[in-house]
């Protein structure tokens, strides 16, 4: 028996909006500690890891570990039917091949349930090794989204370079080149507006912008984004979900032929 009641149902709606274009089908894993997902995009270039810890739910019951295969496009269709202020409850019986999403309006005057068919998905969890990152940049998520969007109108790839000067996002294309430098800035009114750069050593890596733009769909989940870089490792683009967990995107770099 599985029953997860999320008062802030809009969080789940935002999570699906953030990952549905990157991943078609995925297994949601539910255990006593939380609700999680790990999945790759179809070309095996990027990986998404989601964690929603049990303590973030108003009610969390998961009698035994279960893995529920879902088509994220279909799940998103169902969650779009929930209001932004609705409470969302996920329910599944042991051995069932369906999951039910229950939507309750805040004043309890409307209750809907949507039952979705589960699917068998063959997927293996990848082991993500602990890594020491050469540079970690924390910046406003909207700023990062803006930079990725702007650069993708010029080129297809972004070079992210961290030096003591700051973090530089560069691209080039047929029409020209673009460089955007963000310097560390902690003298802001609100902590979420700060740009904080922790650098152990300079690093410069090249990534496909279309994936970065896909990751930026998680912007509504968090005011800030953390970008962790090490040479010859996938970048980690992390959006923390307040009090609950995170969505992390891993993207393999492009290298010289």
């Amino acid at each position: 028996m599985l029953e997860l009641r999320l008062v802030q149902g809009s969080l789940l709606k935002k999570v699906l909006e953030a990952i549905k274009d990157l991943v078609n089908d995925a297994n949601f894993d539910c255990s006593a500690t939380g609700f999680s997902l790990q999945a790759m995009d179809s070309s095996h270039v990027a990986l998404v890891a989601l964690l929603l810890r049990n303590e973030g739910f108003e009610h969390y019951r998961c009698d035994r570990n279960i893995s529920m295969g879902m088509n994220l496009g279909n799940m998103n269709k169902m969650l779009k039917c929930a209001g932004n202020d609705d409470i969302i409850t996920l329910k599944a019986d042991d051995g069932s091949d369906t999951v039910t999403f229950m939507f309750e309006s805040p004043n309890q005057d409307k209750i809907a349930d949507f039952e979705m068919k589960l699917m068998d998905i063959d997927s293996e969890h990848l082991g993500i090794p602990e890594a020491e990152y050469h540079a970690i940049v924390r910046m406003p998520s909207a700023e990062f989204a803006r930079i990725c969007k702007d650069l993708s109108s010029i080129g297809d790839t972004v070079v992210i370079s961290v030096t003591k000067e700051g973090v530089k996002f560069s691209t080039k294309g047929d029409i020209g080149t673009a460089n955007i430098v963000c310097r560390q800035n902690t003298t802001v009114d609100k902590p979420e507006e700060a740009t904080v750069i922790e650098m152990k050593e300079p690093v410069s890596l090249t990534f496909a912008l279309r994936y970065m733009n896909s990751f930026a769909k998680a912007t509504p989940l968090s005011h800030t984004v953390t970008i962790s870089l090490s040479s010859e490792l996938p970048v980690v683009v992390e959006y923390k979900i307040e009090d609950m967990g995170y969505v992390r995107f891993y993207l393999a770099p492009k290298i010289e032929e």
Binding site: M40, H44, V45, A46, L47, E124, H125, L126, G127, I128, P129, T157, T206, A208, L233, P234, Y250, L251, A252, P253, K254, I255, E256, E257
Partner: peptide, 14 residues
């Protein structure tokens, strides 16, 4: 020309 690496080159299957 740069080549896109796979995430599977970094993260191992169990």
């Amino acid at each position: 020309m740069k080549r896109q690496q796979s995430i599977l080159s970094f993260f191992q299957k169990p």
